[in-house]
C-alpha cells in the first residue's frame, strides 16, 4: 500500500566510500576519516584533506564526545515517516576531534537543548540500519 511505502523512514544509503563508516556503526563505533599527514579529522566523506590537501586518508575511531554547535526544531511534516516525531530537533554537534556532525539529540526535551550542551554519541536502529544520535553527557 502506498501510504505504508511512504511511511518508511529514509535509511542511509551505503555506498563504497562510506562502507567502513557503516560497517563500524554496526558495532556501535563512530569512525571519522583522519588525514595521515596532518592528522586532521574530517566529516563528511572527503577525498582530499580540507586542511593540508593530502589524499592520504584513513579511518579512525572518534570518542563520540562533543557539544551542541546549533540546533533547530522541525514543526512541519516533510515526510510521512516523521509523523510521530514532529516537532523534532536537528542538531549540529561539534565533536571534540574537530568535525561538525549533523544529527539529532535523543533523551532531552526540545526546550532543554541549548548551544554548548555537552553530548555523547550513541546509536539507534532505523529499519535494521544503525543510526548515530547524541545524548546529553
Amino acid at each position: 500500500m502506498t501510504n505504508q511505502d511512504q511511511a518508511v523512514r529514509p535509511a542511509p544509503i551505503v555506498d563504497e566510500s562510506s562502507k567502513p563508516f557503516f560497517d563500524a556503526a554496526a558495532d556501535a563505533v563512530l569512525l571519522l576519516q583522519r588525514c595521515n599527514i596532518c592528522h586532521a579529522y574530517l566529516w563528511p566523506f572527503r577525498e582530499i584533506c580540507t586542511e593540508c590537501l593530502s589524499t592520504d586518508l584513513s579511518w579512525a575511531p572518534s570518542t563520540g564526545k562533543g557539544s551542541v554547535h546549533s540546533f533547530v526544531i522541525m514543526h512541519r511534516l516533510f515526510h510521512p515517516a516523521f509523523q510521530e516525531d514532529v516537532p523534532y530537533n536537528l542538531t549540529v554537534v561539534q565533536l571534540d576531534e574537530g568535525p561538525r556532525v549533523t544529527s539529532i539529540i535523543r533523551g532531552t526535551a526540545n526546550e532543554d537543548i541549548h548551544v554548548g550542551m555537552s553530548v555523547s554519541a550513541n546509536w539507534h536502529d532505523v529499519n535494521g540500519t544503525p543510526l548515530l544520535h547524541f545524548e546529553a553527557f
Binding site: 529514509p10 535509511a11 542511509p12 563528511p44 566523506f45 540546533f71 522541525m74 516533510f78 523534532y88 548551544v115
Partner: peptide, 29 residues
C-alpha cells in the same frame, strides 16, 4: 548516497530554511 544520505534519515528537509535557522540559533545561543 553514503554519509551525505544521513541528514534525510534524521528528517533534515527544507534545506536552505533549516541551514539558515541553524545559523540564527547559533547566534541566539
Amino acid at each position: 548516497t553514503g554519509m551525505a544520505s544521513l541528514p534525510a534519515s534524521y528528517g533534515f528537509f527544507s534545506g536552505a530554511n533549516t541551514s539558515y535557522a541553524l545559523a540564527a540559533r547559533r547566534h541566539m545561543g
